[in-house]
Amino acid sequence: MKTFLVLTLAIAAVSAGTIKQKTIHPKDQTSKIEGRITNGYPAYEGKAPYTVGLGFSSNGAGWWCGGSIIASDWVLTAAHCTNNGERVIVYYGATWRTDAQFTHTVSGSDFIQSPDWPNVNGNDIALIRTPHVDFYSMVNKVELPSFNDRYNMYAGWWAVACGWGGIYDGSPQPDWLQCVDLQIISNEQCSQTYGTQPEAILCVATPDGKSTCSGDSGGPLVLQDDAKLVGVTSWVSGNGCQSGDPSGFTRVTSHLEWIRDNTGIAYY
């Protein structure tokens, strides 16, 4: 496996001298999918029509990420996915990764990264302007939280993350879309593992090795009860995806104004 770790965050120490765990961005730099939703379940066709596969390329290198359709001409993903990309193939409506309903190729000039990434933790977010797509059962948008929900931390809520890859560490690498149900935890609880986390980070518990992992970067975390996009897959524990340590997402509610200002998309 050749995994490109874009950024390793500094190891933080608490006052007692205990070393906190480090985190890594799980982007795959390879022509083949090497990542996984670990210990999830196969998605049925049409389960997550807002999920897209993103095949990035630059200077002969390639890497894979996920993303979310948030409008007929916009995809939301992670900044560490778009960073240094010259172009991307967007795979729409795929359950089997490369068997998309259709694809679009988009130039890097249509990538918009958060201006605070990577200097500020919690700003691993980017937009991709795409050609217009029509929505139907296999290809559809996911709604953002409303501005009324921008202070909701969602601790204790259940959400679903989806992406492509194997189902456990060391497994063969199927291309079928996998999903996993994850419970959001408080930032205070997450900080016990990684040191103080800002409000713009959203963490989930990963019991029984259920987690996002390499190749899932940029993909969606969507509330089960409210069907709103609340997280963008950003990082996992440096101990491994199945370590049981929390996984981190960019908190979408922290970026609603930035998304609105760049796309005009907002819910009130």
Rank of each mutant, 00 (worst) to 15 (best):
Y91W: 08
R87D: 14
R251E: 01
A266Y: 15
W117M: 03
L127C: 01
Q197D: 08
I33H: 12
S15D: 09
K47N: 10
D208Q: 09
Q224A: 06
R36K: 15
C65W: 00
I265G: 03
T196A: 06
I167V: 04
I185H: 00
F56Y: 15
C203G: 11
I259H: 05
L54Y: 02
Y91Q: 11
I24T: 08
W64R: 01
V180N: 04
S146C: 06
G122T: 09
G166I: 10
D28G: 07
G46I: 07
A155S: 15
G85N: 14
P207F: 08
V14S: 10
V14W: 10
D99N: 07
D116H: 13
Y91R: 08
N140Q: 15
V90C: 13
F111Q: 06
K47Y: 15
W235S: 12
S137N: 12
L182Y: 03
G238L: 05
G215H: 10
A43P: 02
A126V: 04
D245Q: 05
R251M: 07
E34H: 04
G53R: 06
T98S: 11
P118I: 13
G85W: 14
A43D: 12
A78I: 11
D73A: 03
G46K: 09
G170Y: 12
W176E: 01
S57F: 13
V160F: 09
F147Y: 13
P49A: 00
Q113S: 07
S186Y: 09
L127M: 03
I125Q: 01
T103S: 00
G156Q: 13
L54R: 03
D116G: 00
N121Q: 14
P118W: 05
P174F: 02
Q113C: 01
W64C: 00
T3L: 10
